[in-house]
C-alpha cells in the first residue's frame, strides 16, 4: 500500500507540506514532553537545595520557595556535628581506594584478555558475565561477613574497600575489554617490536587509547562506592566507621543538629562532588559510554 502510493505520486508534494506544518506542532509537543521529564528529574534536587538554605520556620512550613533564606546551615553542620568530618573523610577514603583499585584491576585484566590472549580467557569472561546476572551482592553477604570477621575487618573503614572493589569489578573488566578491542593489534605489536615489554606497551600505548572507557569506570565505581549501603551497615557498627550517606540514611529529621535544613545541607555537600565531576567529564563519559558499553 505504501509503496504503491509512492509509485503513483513519487514525490507526493501536498502530503509533504502538510507534514512540515504538522512537524512544527509536533516539535513543540515534543519539547514540552521532554521538558516535563526534565522537570521531574530536577525538581526533587531543587527541593533539597532550597531546603538547605531555608530558615527553620520555612522548613517546617513546607512551601517550595522560602520566605526567608538562611545560609548558616552549612557552617553549622561543620561546627556542631562532630562526626561529620570523620564520616566525610571515610567516604572520600573508601571511595578513592575503591576507584583506584578497581580501575587498576580492570585495565590490567581488560588488556590481558584482549592483547595477551591467556588460555581459558573465554571461561573467565563467561564467569564475569554470569556474575552480572546472579544476585551475588545479596547472597554472598553471609560469607563476606565471615571473611571480614576472619581478617579482623569488622567495623573497619579500610576493610570496606575489599568487598567494594568487587561490586563493579565484573562490569568494569568487561567495559575495559571492549575498549581494548578497539585498539588495533598492529599498534600493540609495533610497540612490542620496538622493544617495549607488555607493561610499557600497556602504559604508553594502551592506556591513552582507552581513556574514555576509564572515565566511565571512574564514574561508575565512584557512584557505587560513595553510596554503598548494604555492606557498610552490615560490616560496621560505629557511626564513626561509616560513610556519610549511610549516616544520613539513619538520621531522623527533626530538631537540633539534625533539623531538616541541616540534613539538607549535609545532603548537598555529599551529592555535589559526583554531579560536578560528571559535568566536567561528561563529554568523555558519553564517548566512553557509546564506545564501550553499547558497542561492546
Amino acid at each position: 500500500m505504501a509503496t504503491t502510493l509512492n509509485a503513483i505520486h513519487p514525490t507526493a508534494p501536498p502530503r509533504r507540506r502538510l507534514g512540515r506544518l504538522g512537524r512544527g506542532r509536533a516539535a513543540i509537543v515534543r519539547h514540552a514532553v521532554i521538558n516535563l521529564f526534565m522537570l521531574i528529574i530536577l525538581l526533587p534536587l531543587a527541593w533539597v537545595l532550597l531546603m538547605s538554605v531555608k530558615s527553620l520556620p520555612d522548613a517546617m512550613r513546607g512551601t517550595f520557595w522560602p520566605r526567608r533564606f538562611d545560609f548558616t546551615h552549612y557552617r553549622y553542620v561543620f561546627e556542631k556535628i562532630d562526626t561529620l568530618p570523620i564520616n566525610l573523610f571515610n567516604s572520600i577514603y573508601v571511595t578513592a581506594g575503591t576507584v583506584v583499585l578497581t580501575s587498576t584491576c580492570a585495565v590490567l585484566a581488560g588488556y590481558a584478555l584482549v592483547h595477551l590472549k591467556p588460555r581459558g580467557r573465554d571461561f573467565i569472561i563467561a564467569a564475569f558475565l554470569v556474575s552480572l546476572y546472579f544476585p551475588v551482592r545479596v547472597v554472598s553477604l553471609i560469607s563476606v561477613y565471615e571473611t571480614q570477621h576472619f581478617l579482623g575487618l569488622i567495623n573497619s573503614t579500610s576493610g570496606l574497600i575489599l568487598p567494594y572493589v568487587t561490586l563493579n569489578l565484573a562490569i568494569s573488566v568487561l567495559i575495559m575489554r571492549s575498549m581494548f578491542q578497539l585498539v588495533p593489534h598492529e599498534l600493540m605489536e609495533a610497540a612490542k617490536i620496538d622493544g617495549a615489554g607488555p607493561w610499557r606497551t600497556l602504559w604508553l600505548v594502551g592506556v591513552p587509547m582507552v581513556r574514555n572507557g576509564l572515565v566511565v569506570i571512574f564514574i561508575v565505581n565512584f557512584v557505587t562506592a560513595w553510596g554503598e549501603f548494604l555492606l557498610c551497615t552490615t560490616l560496621t557498627n560505629d557511626q564513626t566507621a561509616r560513610t556519610m550517606p549511610v549516616v544520613l540514611a539513619g538520621a531522623q529529621g527533626g530538631l537540633g543538629q539534625w533539623s531538616w535544613p541541616n540534613l539538607a545541607a549535609v545532603y548537598v555537600i555529599v551529592v555535589t562532588p559526583g554531579i560536578l565531576a560528571f559535568s566536567f567529564a561528561q563529554k568523555l563519559f558519553f564517548k566512553g559510554l557509546t564506545e564501550g558499553v553499547v558497542k561492546g
Partner: peptide, 12 residues
Amino acid sequence: VLLVPAVIPSTL
C-alpha cells in the same frame, strides 16, 4: 540532565 540522577549514589 538525564544522567544527573544516574550519578547520584544509591543511598542518597
